[in-house]
Nucleic acid binder design. Structure first.
Lengths: 371, 371
DNA sequence: GACCGGACGTGTTACGTATAACTTCCGGCG
DNA sequence: CGCCGGAAGTTATACGTAACACGTCCGGTC
């Protein structure tokens, strides 16, 4: 009778010492829900019910307590692979970012992860390929089946397989009618640009060069359009636009071109991004010009970089964490079947030392032959 | 006989049209290996063998080809949850980084992911809590069972549950005798500091203040020790050390304190990190001093930031990607049962505009009353 | 002709979980 | 008394895959 393999209730032969945080558990004797059941003297099903918090009216409070104790004592952790297989869902979302280098998306992740945790979800990151093999598949990058995807529109290229699989896809800062997305969450980029432009115009700037990121992405197209629109009605305003990559030295080269090109020299460089602005600042200084006396420079994003350079950058602060939160909330809503209407998140102008009235303000006299 | 549910070979009734990249697959009719088997006219086991590349001498080349064709046509993707459950392994490694903001770890990830891919592994990121709930568990952050972990020693706090589970743990830049780690991979930080110090001493600097990151971590302890050792034998050398957090304004405050404190003013600020150095530069300039004429400043890491500030930072370039590669290789070796000996990776001094001979060199006359 | 072994496959099982379906007990009610 | 219905459990099953163990055929060998 004692040799029976089904351990009778009350028998707690198995666990030798353990003591809550037994440090000496070397290799892994995987603990399953059945082990917990044996120790608690119930069936495996009961364990699943109790730990899944679905036991009300199905298991007596006493046994439920016993199950929880047993689980704790054994250090039980449900096997997520088995759970996923059974449930057909993984409670995991994928966040696709254009590149990991960006502080901005780090903050987006933080917000998204917080909301996900509230829903019992995990978040897995997928940095768009850039050095990794070109055809790397977001699917297995996580080595997990996924329930949904949140992706920066900048990284939209890698998303085809995910979309084809019919996964819900929330796009960050994407065109509202983007056919690729199940839902869309936006920042009020246009308003940020508007604030920035208004600020420059109020200081007296008329000759503005827009150093525009040469990335085909909604978020940058909006910037371009908003700059154009905002300067359209300003009398005497003259806008030029130069494309540039999202790197410091690319910004430097573009700014150099802007300042040494034909026609009157611009008094303000409006940059799509703090990184570009940092490069632009270097270019200005290398030409022997001063910021902001000779040239004003503005950034976008308000990264740590914005206060690292001298002078500190006037820029637009994006609520990155709230953005991540909104994205994850939208995904959760989609998964719950609610379609999600989402207003654009407000952004904030931060004025610092890199902008000031231009030397020739406010008369705006055309200074010919700026070289 | 024809009504037998086991589809006779040759029958391909199921798939209607599909045509390789059928775009209209709205919601998900999960395609399993059994579907592939049916279409190819073989058993599910054969599909598993062929797709797992274990079919040589077990399945005829013709049928193998048929299986592959069927899989392609249906767009079959193995269910990773099921595979993990069956195999007890997930082919997934977790990379724990101290914070996502750091460009350095973004590059580490890139290298690690590349090596992992070569071994058929995926990499999942876990940014140490910092805004996320304090007790967030790396285990479920991945929503996947893991085969191994690579972690920055800076983030070692969150690793207890992983270690207790008996997972192989590779520590990055950790003490070689760190009992928490299964293996350790290091950068030759000490040598980097040595090169930096030698450079400063050669320029004539004797009064050096070390702005040391106040993070309890091997990698920073090594820096401190190396600085002390390197200056120990230099006649007339005078070293001070000030702790600072890893933020720009913390660096600024520390540098301010260093430059305005009692005793002769240091001619060089040796910073543990480019970020700190960026802050230090701001402090120097705010005091009306010039870089590098009055004060030399050095960084560490060679981030993008290092060339964004003016003047560009003399710093030490860390081979971040190779570091990630080495870490992942070590993990793979552990998983294969080979113990891994690992030499420290070499680093490289990068001299730029932020260092120069001090004004009072080389006589090194003590200038009293540095305030 | 009996036996062997390799090529080519298939049937079956187990991984650990969640849950539908079933059993048993028991108090209450018509 | 017969029967209903809820509480308290248990049993059984399926999720999709990998791989073990088992067949069958067939050419070759003694």
């Amino acid at each position: 009778m004692t040799s029976n393999e089904a351990t009778p209730p009350g028998a707690r032969t198995e666990a030798p010492i353990t003591g809550a945080a037994g440090a000496a558990r070397a290799s892994r004797p995987r603990i399953t829900s059945r082990d917990v059941a044996r120790l608690a003297g119930v069936s495996q099903a009961a364990v699943s019910l109790v730990l899944g918090d679905k036991w009300h009216g199905r298991v007596s409070p006493g046994k439920a307590e016993a199950v929880r104790d047993a689980a704790r004592e054994l250090g039980y952790r449900p096997n997520l692979a088995a759970r996923s297989l059974r449930m057909g869902r993984t409670r995991t979302a994928l966040l696709v970012v254009p590149a990991l280098t960006t502080e901005f998306f780090a903050r987006v992740y933080t917000g998204a992860a917080r909301v996900a945790a509230d829903h019992g979800f995990g978040v897995v990151l997928y940095p768009s390929p850039e050095g990794i093999g070109p055809a790397r598949d977001p699917f297995d990058s996580a080595a997990a089946t996924l329930d949904g995807v949140i992706a920066s529109s900048m990284a939209a290229d890698a998303l085809a397989p995910l979309r084809d699989a019919g996964l819900p896809l929330v796009m960050l800062d994407s065109a509202p009618d983007d056919h690729r997305a199940t839902a869309t969450v936006n920042l009020d980029i246009a308003d940020g640009i508007r604030q920035l432009t208004t600020h420059l115009v109020a200081l007296g700037h008329r000759r503005v060069t827009h150093l525009a990121a040469d990335v085909r992405s909604w978020t940058f197209e909006v910037r371009a359009r908003a700059v154009t629109d905002a300067l359209h009605d300003v009398p005497g305003a003259h806008l030029r636009r130069l494309p540039t990559a999202l790197h410091i030295d690319a910004g430097l080269r573009a700014a150099h071109a802007a300042l040494t090109g034909p026609g009157p020299r611009p008094t303000a460089l409006l940059c799509d991004d703090d990184i570009i602005a940092a490069g632009a600042c270097k270019a200005v200084r290398r030409l022997g010009l001063r910021i902001p006396e000779d040239v004003s420079v503005t950034g976008f994003d308000d990264l740590a970089l914005a206060v690292a350079v001298e002078p500190e950058l006037t820029t637009v602060r994006l609520p990155a964490e709230e953005f991540g939160e909104a994205g994850m909330r939208a995904l959760m809503a989609v998964l719950d079947g609610h379609p999600a209407p989402a207003p654009a998140l407000p952004v904030e102008l931060v004025t610092r030392g890199s902008t000031a009235p231009p030397a020739d303000a406010p008369g705006n006299a055309a200074r010919p032959g700026g070289r």
